[in-house]
């Protein structure tokens, strides 16, 4: 067993608005709100702590507004936290930042972009967040390789084709823009793009939400197979407990910006401790 986490998050907090200093102690599940009663700031997430181990799939569940997607956005450097620490241990990090542990939130935009490109793969719920809809699907994937500094067209092309095959995309459509693709195919392009530089960590934000049941099953299947082949660590955010059940080892339950419960996935689903989790589990069809 890997004893050391590949990814660690400490005291992660994000507040939208101008925090008054008392926001965190005036919000959360106990107060049944994530809006500070004193200053009207929105506490998207607060005091989030967790770690992700090599090869592990971690689920984050919660309903809309629970802050689960905010956590992913913070970890992908899409938004900046109010406070928090964020560490990833991997040889690729050493290549970029040198030795020694560095809080990734404190890096320069240039370093963050390198990490985003080399160490983190991300698949968003909405394909337009992860893809340029008018640029060819192949180009979208190639972009990550170009960021990584690859300047050989033939090799870029080969790699893109390989990723197309891996994600079961039709190769003859490589030069078409994703806007012409179905929702399921757009997600595959996103997955192919996320995998392009073999990142050790993958973030999946509601990747199957809004897809047909059969398409959803195939995407889940793809994720399972890729995880088996690459053995990367995954954080998967979803409100859908069936996805969490099928894919994850451990689960974090969030409500109104806070973690209310964390545990082994089958334990969370069969022996939920927190009233909110009990309600969530019992609300499933």
């Amino acid at each position: 067993m890997e004893l050391f986490p590949i990814l660690e998050v400490r005291n992660l907090t994000k507040i939208y608005g101008k925090p008054c200093g008392e926001c965190i102690s005036h919000t959360g599940p106990i107060y049944e709100t994530n809006i500070c009663s004193r200053c009207n700031s929105l506490v998207a997430c607060a005091d989030i702590n967790f770690e992700l181990y090599p090869g592990e799939i971690l689920g984050i569940v919660g309903e809309s507004g629970s802050g689960k997607s905010t956590v992913i956005k913070l970890l992908a450097f899409d938004v900046e936290p109010l406070q928090g620490e964020y560490y990833i241990k991997h040889e690729k990090i050493i290549n970029i930042l040198g030795n020694g542990q560095k809080n990734l939130f404190n890096l320069t935009p240039f370093e963050k972009r390198q990490i985003r490109n080399q160490v983190i793969g991300i698949v968003y719920q909405y394909p337009y967040l992860g893809l340029k809809m008018n640029i060819s699907a192949g180009g979208n994937i190639a972009e990550n390789l170009l960021v990584a500094g690859l300047r050989n067209l033939k090799r870029i092309r080969e790699k893109v084709l390989e990723l197309f095959e891996k994600t079961e995309l039709p190769i003859q459509r490589i030069d078409e823009p994703p806007i012409k693709f179905s929702g399921g195919m757009q997600q595959r392009v996103q997955i192919a793009k996320a995998l392009s530089n073999n990142p050790p960590v993958l973030f999946l934000d509601e990747v199957t939400t809004g897809l047909d049941v059969s398409v959803k099953a195939r995407i889940l299947d793809l994720i399972k197979n890729l995880h088996h082949d690459y053995n990367f660590s995954i954080i998967i955010v979803s409100h859908d407990l069936s996805i969490i059940r099928v894919l994850t080892h451990r689960t974090i339950v969030m409500k109104l910006g806070r973690v209310v419960e964390a545990g082994l996935t089958d334990q969370i689903l069969e022996d939920p401790q927190h009233p909110y989790t009990q309600l969530l589990v019992n609300s499933q069809l």
């Binding site: 067993m1 099953a217 195939r218 889940l220 299947d221 399972k224």
Partner: peptide, 21 residues
Amino acid sequence: IALREKEIGYVSQFLRVIPRV
């Protein structure tokens, strides 16, 4: 998790079917 992966197995009363497997 390590014990489940290396040492302790569990067979439930009913098979939990995973789609498309």
